[in-house]
Computed example of a mutant assay.
Amino acid sequence: MEAEPLLVERKRNVVTLILNRPEKKNSLSPELVKNLLQTLEELSADDSIRVVVIRGAGKKAFCAGYDIRALPTGPSNDVREKLKTLNPIELLFKAVVSYPYPTIAMINGATFGAGCELAVCCDISIGADDISIGMPPARLGLVYPLSGLQRFIQTIGFRNTREMFFTGRTYRGERLKEIGLLNYVVPSDELESFTYHMAEEIAANAPLALKGTKRILNLLLPPAPLDKENLMEAESISEAAFLSEDLQEGQLAFIEKRKPKFKGR
């Protein structure tokens, strides 16, 4: 019998969501995304839950991104139909950002792609000193969506977002804190105790203050300053890359564990 992709644990006013696909480095499958969305919706209606902690099962990965094998590519007469596959992920990110109480990403292992954005969507990110984090879209031939790039800009700034997405580098140690991806870097054997001490500290505060402050902070997040024409251009750029030969080559190279041979088309 296959294990549940999402585990939910509660201790007093703190709930932990555990991405439970350790054999796949806790990558986001369509089923896991659906379960996360449903669970967050249910939890948001319960004001006795003051903090949500998100972590990965095991010790090797927080979340290795979206399961690349579930990503459709190839010719299509309707690009947007294919892109609908990714819509639930964007809904998940929005659900984490708009969750009424504070959220904490407890990053206990490798974190890449959509897993990195999931952590960025949380209010606070705490990572072990032996983890690695990266955004590999450029290495796969993918143009990251406007909404995702905006979240990174809001979290780590323009310059660090440019470096991260242009290079596709993997970051480790104190550099993760320097560029703003983590609030704290702690020894791996102290990660759990450090995270839950903070979660309990937050949960002990006045619920109206937590909920009200979270809402106002979200109201202060600036929307992307794009008119309709520029927004359509950004969407068309992402769509073109989504159907490119380079993306197919990037996926195949990833599966075959080799360097991709991009052709620029």
Score class of each variant (00 low, 15 high):
residue 237 I to R: 13
residue 32 L to T: 02
residue 14 V to F: 14
residue 222 P to T: 00
residue 54 I to N: 08
residue 212 G to L: 08
residue 251 Q to Y: 13
residue 161 T to K: 00
residue 228 K to F: 09
residue 121 C to T: 08
residue 252 L to G: 11
residue 207 P to Y: 06
residue 68 I to M: 14
residue 174 E to C: 11
residue 176 L to H: 06
residue 24 K to Y: 05
residue 215 R to W: 01
residue 43 L to S: 03
residue 52 V to T: 02
residue 261 K to M: 15
residue 142 L to N: 13
residue 127 G to N: 06
residue 22 P to W: 09
residue 225 P to N: 12
residue 131 I to K: 03
residue 27 S to L: 14
residue 7 L to N: 05
residue 132 S to F: 15
residue 245 E to M: 12
residue 230 N to I: 07
residue 40 L to S: 01
residue 124 I to Q: 00
residue 34 K to Y: 11
residue 39 T to Q: 12
residue 146 L to E: 14
residue 104 I to Q: 00
residue 242 F to R: 10
residue 141 G to L: 00
residue 179 I to F: 13
residue 24 K to L: 12
residue 196 Y to A: 00
residue 40 L to E: 09
residue 190 E to H: 14
residue 44 S to F: 14
residue 118 L to V: 03
residue 223 P to A: 02
residue 93 F to K: 12
residue 109 G to S: 08
residue 43 L to T: 06
residue 46 D to T: 00
residue 144 Y to C: 13
residue 119 A to P: 10
residue 220 L to V: 05
residue 222 P to V: 00
residue 60 K to A: 05
residue 187 P to Y: 06
residue 221 L to D: 05
residue 63 C to R: 05
residue 182 L to H: 11
residue 100 P to L: 00
residue 260 P to L: 03
residue 158 F to G: 06
residue 118 L to E: 03
residue 34 K to Q: 10
residue 51 V to Q: 07
residue 68 I to V: 15
residue 1 M to D: 10
residue 245 E to Y: 12
residue 103 T to R: 11
residue 128 A to Y: 14
residue 30 P to W: 02
residue 131 I to A: 00
residue 233 E to F: 13
residue 30 P to Q: 01
residue 173 G to F: 12
residue 109 G to Y: 04
residue 135 M to A: 09
residue 192 E to S: 05
residue 265 R to K: 15
residue 191 L to N: 01
residue 172 R to H: 05
residue 21 R to D: 13
residue 69 R to S: 14
residue 160 N to F: 15
residue 191 L to H: 10
residue 5 P to F: 07
residue 12 R to Y: 01
residue 153 I to P: 02
residue 164 M to S: 06
residue 260 P to S: 09
residue 91 L to N: 04
residue 74 G to I: 06
residue 1 M to A: 11
residue 67 D to Y: 11
residue 106 M to E: 05
residue 213 T to C: 02
residue 88 P to D: 04
residue 174 E to R: 12
residue 105 A to W: 09
residue 67 D to E: 13
residue 229 E to R: 14
residue 157 G to S: 02
residue 244 S to N: 07
residue 262 F to M: 11
residue 63 C to V: 07
residue 31 E to Y: 10
residue 241 A to C: 03
